[in-house]
Amino acid sequence: MRAPPSPPGPDRHRALAALDGAIALLVVILIAQMWVLGASLESYLAGHRDSALVGAITSAVLFAGSFGLFLFIRRLDRPAR
């Protein structure tokens, strides 16, 4: 049986706005990660092997950021529902 939805209110609207912001940030992080992967690949193919390490570290930091945002979304989502 489906739980009754929580009534709309200012808290809920704030939560929705925060969710939108978090998702927008996730998209920005993802675009940055795509660029990092593309640049690393191009650099690797050009024979610069050192850039692979820098690319991997940057990508890991960006992934940590996106995972943190995802946890934030989950945490925000639970009480609001």
């Binding site: 690949l41 692979a52 990508s59 890991a60």
Partner: peptide, 11 residues
Amino acid sequence: SLGMLAGNTWL
């Protein structure tokens, strides 16, 4: 994002 990280790790 995890996929992108996997790509960089593969490189």
